[in-house]
Design a protein around this nucleic acid. Structure first.
Lengths: 304, 304
DNA sequence: GCATTTGATAGAGATTAACTATCATGACCG
DNA sequence: CGGTCATGATAGTTAATCTCTATCAAATGC
């Protein structure tokens, strides 16, 4: 059991090292920036606590006892470890340095991260982001357990015990296969025009599913059996003519290139999801996350 | 440079470890045998000193920050090293334990050590004697430099700054080759009878040389050119008929067996050398050395 | 709701470590 | 020899630190 109180202090060990190196109490005291009697007293206290004499104080000078010689190595190891602790702590002083566990939902990750990761690296080179991709509920739970420092979410409502900062609105576009009735024209399409369409949605648990449903809640549509587990898959399904879907704008750049897919703007009120950066209330990472949020906002992936 | 003052204490690190393990300030405080506010205060002080937050204190419980997680390993290493220092110190608490650097002069070593080493091991099993064989002057210098803890010497005079305890008197015998005039008879021989003999002596620097010369100082004798560098060699020279010599009694058991050597007792006043155990005045080892001396005296290698 | 538990805070008290001044001893040097 | 310098130890006081009890605000749990 190593949990007993330690009968000595780091300062005493520093004194021992200083004495061993200078072989002179006064010089050692000067190096430690204390008066010589203080050093004498602390050494005496340490020797009493350990029951071991480190030095013989003789007119001839200061001599290490065999025990002192052996223990000096331990003393140095303790001090080295302590010193490294202090140095390593320095690296964590900067809130924008060190490991940073960030979550992101799957319907944003493939569109946001390719640009966000390099941007973060450039802006905060000492930051070491560790990305975790999972659904909202899982990320929120991990945030609250302290297993994540922050998460990129698309919020419907305020989340209890989480602070958030809005990064912007991500408008929904209508995705239809080439040849579909809506594939032609340029005017914004009204949601109600989708009445009777076959709708492709994300799998349960993906917030995008609920948001899309909410956007169309007053529109009678048929939901297809198939539920996508990833947005690229969903887009692929639309492109192959199975149905239509709502696609967030941030996916535009990456998904619009498909030959058999047509994306149409929606008319006011344009449905959207609110992209936020969330963290535990009172999290140590709050300062850093606010700066990260600012950076992400400036990337203009979405309307602000 | 690692010599800067360390801005934290071992106790604070123990608090951190206790909190990290219990995830509960009160339990941690109890384990550390302090009141909870003390622990809170010390943790706050540590975090302030390092500029790093170890824990998030949340209604949900105590959560390690990433920095805390990383630094906790350092904390544990410091505490482990400190703990091992304390444990190792225990082994040195017993004055009769641990390494013990002992000197012995060459004219005693081969006769004393074969019996003394096992006896020491049996009496003080935790003692780890490290024997050094050298001449008196060298041993005394090493004692004074703190490179030896004690030394077995044959003293002529008090040695400055050294404390000694007498182990006994080692009487001198006359060694002559078989066939020599003194080889016959059993009566003690008077020193003066050696007038005109060819005397074999140890090399310069060996105290035995000076002691033998002192014993014969009023007797006119011829010193042979050859000076022995070891006592067994000297005995061998005598046995081969080159001359006579004075041999300390402690060599009797080992050297008397030679067929061509005869040992005769000397008449009163029998010359002798005083065998002592010596150490630095104020040496940490004094207590142990006195016990070692007692053991050696009881071995009755010599007259007490 | 109400009792319980969480960690933080305030202020007093006790402990610890620091300081200055001085001492005893031995080394060094003329 | 005798004075000067250096050593580390000691005494007594002051300053800093740590810990204590008592209490608070907030959240949990039945």
């Amino acid at each position: 059991m190593t949990g007993n109180p330690l009968p000595f202090s780091l300062r005493q060990l520093q004194y021992v090292r200083a004495i061993a190196e200078t072989r002179n109490f006064r010089q050692a005291a000067e190096r430690c920036a204390v008066a010589q009697p203080s050093l004498s007293a602390q050494l005496a206290a340490l020797e009493a606590a350990l029951g071991v004499r480190f030095f013989e104080r003789d007119r001839r000078g200061v001599i290490l006892t065999p025990a002192g010689e052996a223990l000096l190595q331990r003393v140095n190891r303790v001090l080295t470890e302590a010193s490294e602790l202090r140095e390593e702590a320095k690296h964590f002083r900067d809130p924008l340095a060190g490991p940073f566990r960030l979550g992101v939902i799957p319907t944003m990750a493939p569109y946001l991260l390719p640009k966000a990761v390099p941007a973060l690296r450039e802006a905060f080179p000492k930051l070491v982001p560790q990305w975790v991709e999972d659904r909202t509920a899982t990320l929120v739970a991990q945030l609250q357990q302290g297993r994540l420092d922050g998460a990129l979410l698309a919020l419907e409502a305020e989340l209890q015990d989480l602070e958030t900062t809005t990064l912007g609105r991500d408008h929904f576009l209508l995705a239809v296969p080439k040849g579909h009735a809506f594939a032609k024209g340029r005017k914004p399409i009204r949601i109600h025009a989708l009445e009777g369409e076959r709708m492709l949605l994300m799998d349960d648990g993906h917030c995008l599913r609920h948001q899309a449903l909410a956007a169309c809640r007053e529109v009678g549509m048929e939901e297809l059996e198939f539920r996508a587990t990833s947005l690229p898959t969903l887009v692929q399904m639309v492109a192959s003519g199975i149905g239509v879907s709502l696609l967030p704008e941030m996916a535009l750049a990456m998904e619009a290139g498909r030959a058999s897919l047509v994306l149409r703007r929606l008319a006011d009120p344009v449905p959207y999801r609110t992209v936020v950066l969330a963290w535990r209330r009172g999290s140590h990472a709050a300062v850093a996350l606010k700066k990260i949020a600012k950076l992400l906002r400036n990337m203009r992936h979405f309307v602000q």
